[in-house]
Design a protein around this nucleic acid. Structure first.
Lengths: 222, 222
DNA sequence: ATAAAAGTGTAACAATTGTTACACTCTCAG
DNA sequence: CTGAGAGTGTAACAATTGTTACACTTTTAT
């Protein structure tokens, strides 16, 4: 495993720590590799360090009490995993983390994070901003889940991803994944999708979606 | 408005800033009062400062795109409001904040927060922990919403609040509020509740609930 | 004390979604 | 090239929840 490039990492990018040659050598951290499709972190595991995904991509998913899977998101390196939870009173991971390919994960002890925060204002600021953005992401998820109809969720999701009416865009999830993401049954999602296609609201070609009638799509949110 | 007591405030309690006499005088902040039932902050408002509820109580609720209200929580002073969002890239409030009684709200500019964080390790640590706990709260809300049946949500919620089987506990929400909290229709919630009472799983007396059969309640989560 | 407002219980019916099943297409590894 | 597995389309039916309506009870304000 070579020298890690953290210049694209959201909590490090604005920080001058990337330029400090001594940074990674000084940092008391360990790096581990995992094979494809490995369950790396379990929901409920103690989170006593900051985990940073330095290579590859993972998916996070929440297991609900009734055993259902609620897909959360796909994370690509470099990015920290659940950085907020290092500091929470009940410091346990809220999600399962599974590797989608071969990955490398860096583990930085909490004390080291504290030291960095106090000595480096840019790092602190970036770390805060990143955590704030994560909170906003969760808020968006809450908003999506709180839309009760499947067509409403789809409208919200498609409008969010569409740049312009009539302009196709790619969705990097298949129908099964989308159904998980929305927390609905797969055939139900397929039904709603095909109805929306028949009504001429959208077009679908494999994973390429096109919003045809933005206005009527918005009305599904009412 | 008298001297504010912040010793019970989660982001200040462990901090020695409370002991610094000069703290509140030095701090460039403003305090405003609001009448009962006032919409203090609108979802989407720019959040360029830290808002701290110093007196009274408020409720936060999220307005979904279809106009429904998704109740989030009731906040009692002293506590900061949406502290994470001061630092987010898109720094807008995620919820509406409405006063439940006469309230006082302190507004501290972002720059002041930054200064405090850098000069006071305890403040920083408390602020981080509090934000982390907020994230965990949102995660729990996500988990609750992802349970699909109303009885399942109720079981989750009641088991979470029950200390012991057969021991009554108080819920500080009425049925209408609970329905909002769950994001379901009020009569549907009432139906599920009365069914659970008839099946002998729980007992209800106004706002006092009792879990009678923990085991069978758990099975509703499956 | 009393009227108004808020909250609750419940019923009939509508609407939406889940379940199950199966045929079909597509993708990818051998 | 080809078979296995993953992903999709769709249909019949079941289950759950929402909607609307109304009578009743409790709380609140004057």
């Amino acid at each position: 495993m070579g020298k890690v490039d953290l210049s694209a990492c959201p909590v490090c990018s604005k920080s001058d720590i990337v330029d400090e040659l001594a940074f990674l050598d000084d940092l008391k951290c360990t790096i581990k590799s995992y094979q494809k499709n490995t369950l790396i972190i379990r929901q409920g595991d103690i989170c006593d360090a900051l985990y940073v995904l330095t290579l590859g991509s993972v998916k996070t998913e929440m297991i609900t009490e009734n055993g259902n899977i609620l897909g959360i998101e796909i994370i690509k390196a470099p990015r920290p995993l659940a950085p907020a939870f290092v500091f929470s009173d009940n410091n346990r991971f809220p999600v399962n983390v599974t590797s989608l390919e071969e990955v490398e994960i860096m583990k930085i002890p909490k004390a080291e994070i504290m030291r960095l925060m106090m000595t480096n204002q840019n790092f602190m600021s970036s770390f805060m901003t990143h955590n704030a953005n994560r909170t906003q992401f969760l808020t968006n998820r809450l908003q999506l889940l709180s839309i009760k109809t499947i067509k409403g969720k789809l409208a919200h999701f498609l409008l969010e991803n569409s740049l312009e009416e009539g302009k196709p865009f790619e969705i990097n999830r298949n129908q099964t994944g989308l159904a998980d993401f929305f927390g609905v049954a797969r055939p139900s999602l397929a039904r709603s999708l095909s109805e929306m296609v028949q009504e001429g609201l959208i077009q679908i070609n494999k994973k390429e979606y096109t919003v045809l009638k933005t206005k009527q799509l918005r009305e599904l949110l009412v």
